Amino acid sequence: MTIQAAPPATHRFGLRDFAIVVVMNVLWGLNIIAVKMAVTEIAPMTAGFLRQVIVFAVCASWFRLVPGRTATLALLGLLSGGIFYLVINLSLSVATNIGALAIAGQLGVPFALLLAIVVFRERIHWPRMLGIGLSILGVVLLVFDPSAAREGAGLALTALASLIWAITSLIQRRLVGVPVLTIYAWVGLMGSLVMAVVAMITEPVAMRAIPDLPLRTVGWVAFSAIGSTVIGQGSMSWLLQRHSVSVVTPMTLAAPIISVFAAAYYFGNPLTLLMLAGGGVAMLGVAIVTIRTARADRLEGKLA
């Protein structure tokens, strides 16, 4: 999830920046494996609870009541830390073709733009409309792939999670200037509370078994919490403070590609021609939307 920041100072994009981009994409790309293993070896809601507890523990020292932003932070934490992970963990727990879910997860970008059009009356031109159409078409193509079509429940839940992610991306527009670790302290706190209640009701046995979990299993959760959320999101925030959105945002497009191929390799999911075509079309649409939106933001910044 991209955190919008104040206009960055001008810095040369050097080797250190490129290394951070690589690490960020690899962490985000491999995260889908960690989450799938966590929800399989623990239980979906309990795994989500543990993830948010770790996020809060890492970011707790940054927890603040921010005047005029506290209600927004609480709402973001409820949606992003609680409801989003409730849905996404459930989707991964019922699916076997994880690569297909990685492709469907790209619906968050066009969903966010569509919500911006409805909520903020944002005006867009035909290139981004084309990008939205291609993104949706690419996911629709998965329905015609027998290996992916069996994942109907998982794909539907992933699409719902993408919509929730899109809503949270709009909420984050109201949090410009709030430190990213403060934001994720709220996400961890609210997510822990939501997931604790849900897990205690639906997975009481798994919750009681937390103290007996092997380190390997906890490691999957820690990778998601620290690697994907804290380090991944922290890297994105750091890059946005040094470079423009139009430079940084397109560089995140490698993450879903890594997810698809990593899931295919690790879980032995088939990569059929139709699935690759659907993924390619979806990623092309996401790339168009991402790059054109970044350019629009840059132009607005120059006119401001």
Rank of each mutant, 00 (worst) to 15 (best):
A34C: 12
A38I: 06
M45K: 15
V53S: 13
R51M: 07
R64E: 13
L27N: 08
V39S: 02
T96F: 14
G82N: 01
R64P: 09
I32C: 09
L65V: 14
L76S: 12
G29S: 04
L79Y: 00
E41D: 15
I32S: 11
A47P: 04
A71P: 09
V87D: 08
A38Q: 11
F63C: 08
L107D: 00
L78A: 06
V53A: 14
F56S: 06
R69Y: 05
I98V: 14
V35G: 12
S91E: 01
A100Q: 07
G82A: 05
C59L: 05
M45W: 15
T72M: 15
M37L: 15
S80K: 12
R69W: 03
V26L: 11
N31K: 07
S93C: 10
T96N: 15
G81D: 08
L75V: 15
A74D: 09
S91R: 04
L78Y: 06
I98P: 00
V53E: 01
V94C: 02
R51E: 11
L50P: 09
A43C: 05
W62Y: 15
V26K: 05
T70S: 10
I103N: 01
P67Y: 03
Q106T: 15
A71K: 14
L86T: 14
K36N: 06
I42K: 00
L92T: 10
L76V: 13
Y85N: 12
L90D: 14
V39E: 00
L79Q: 09
V53H: 05
G99I: 04
R64T: 10
V58W: 01
N89D: 06
A47F: 02
V35H: 09
I54T: 12
R69T: 01
L107G: 02
L50G: 10
G48W: 06
G81F: 01
V55L: 11
V58C: 09
G68N: 07
R69N: 05
F63V: 07
V39G: 03
L50N: 04
L86Y: 13
L76C: 12
L107N: 01
G82W: 00
I88S: 12
L79T: 05
V26I: 13
T40V: 10
A71Q: 12
L65N: 07
G68S: 01
V53P: 07
I83V: 14
S61Q: 14
V35R: 15
P67N: 06
V87Y: 06
G29D: 03
L92K: 00
L50V: 11
A102N: 03
S91D: 04
A100M: 07
N25M: 03
W28S: 03
L79M: 01
N31G: 15
M37F: 13
I32Y: 15
S91G: 12
Q52R: 08
G108W: 13
G68T: 02
V87C: 03
V94S: 02
A102C: 07
R51G: 09
G68L: 08
N97A: 05
S61E: 13
A95T: 14
A100Y: 10
A38K: 09
G108C: 08
A95E: 11
I88T: 10
T46V: 00
L90S: 15
N31F: 01
L76N: 14
A95Q: 11
A57H: 04
K36G: 10
T40L: 11
W62L: 02
L79N: 03
L92R: 03
I54C: 10
Y85I: 01
L30I: 08
A71C: 08
A60Y: 05
R64W: 09
G108T: 11
V87S: 08
A60K: 09
L79S: 00
